[in-house]
Design a protein around this nucleic acid. Structure first.
Lengths: 158, 158
DNA sequence: TATTGTTATACTCTATAACTATA
DNA sequence: TATAGTTATAGAGTATAACAATA
């Protein structure tokens, strides 16, 4: 779906030359591309990606979470979740444990190392945000966030 | 890099439950995800993707463009560009033609059908933007665009 | 009979390297 | 020697289907 967001951020000239810069949607897209690119680059230090960061965040936030629940929560295929949990378990960030009342379920829990690295990832997110949005004043940043929330409220009824 | 943007938009609950909604970066990310998802869905009607839409836009904007130039412009691997131009040529949207002064180059040009479908894609982009940003007033939309440009100016020196 | 987790498999997408033709 | 284009091939990522265990 989003092959363009993959790969390098690309030549700055395309910003102007594609003549898409008047499109507010393209501006959003470009900003997100830069945000993600920077974030993933720094996140490599704790051996995480945006997606595994979301997974750890969810597991931390709503324990105990089954793999199916996690799958639905972040919109990732169940089989992919299995593979990713395998990776996170091998990294020592996550532990599977059989649910006692429903022995089909694997409850997902963070290990101490998982909590440590999730905290580090949160710090990376803070840093990157501060850096990318540094051209804005605090008030402007709030305005930007409020407007974005207003748009999302209509399409993402949380 | 952005596996999370792939696939379905996911369960709305994650917006709140991931506790990331306070992060302005996450808000940007979510908005872009919804924008892209909606855009690609509608773009299927003209057999294009976000990436091939960018390609057609670039070819339209800066003819004659070689495949290498296009590759650098949109930050996509040259071999991938070859495959994608193959697709676009098969769709009848693009024509390759040998450059006379440098016979190594293939100049890329839009066909009539290519121009027609690019115009249709532009209309789709307009529609989707109008729809997604409909919760904002015109003034708010301008503010949003201005703030985004201000952020980008620092990281994307066009 | 439905659900959770898993594996095996196929499919798509992308990148690497090697080749050709031109410069 | 370098560049534009191409092809072949291998790798990663993802999804589909089938299966085991449990409800």
């Amino acid at each position: 779906m989003t092959e363009c967001l993959t790969g390098p951020v690309g030549n700055p000239t395309n910003f102007a030359s594609l003549s898409l810069s008047r499109r507010v949607g393209f501006l959003s897209y470009k900003l997100t591309q830069i945000l993600l690119h920077t974030f993933e680059e720094r996140l490599a230090a704790v051996k995480l990606t945006t997606r595994t960061y979301f997974m750890l965040s969810a597991i931390d936030r709503e324990p105990p979470l089954s793999q199916q629940e996690l799958s639905r929560l972040i919109g990732v295929d169940p089989t992919t979740v299995v593979a990713l949990v395998d990776d996170l378990e091998q990294l020592g960030y996550v532990k599977r444990s059989r649910n006692r009342s429903d022995r089909r379920r694997h409850d997902l829990l963070l290990t101490a190392a998982g909590r440590r690295n999730l905290a580090a990832a949160h710090r990376v997110a803070d840093e990157v945000e501060a850096e990318i949005f540094s051209p804005l004043t605090a008030a402007e940043r709030d305005t930007y966030a409020d407007l974005t929330r207003k748009v999302l409220a209509n399409h993402w009824p949380a």
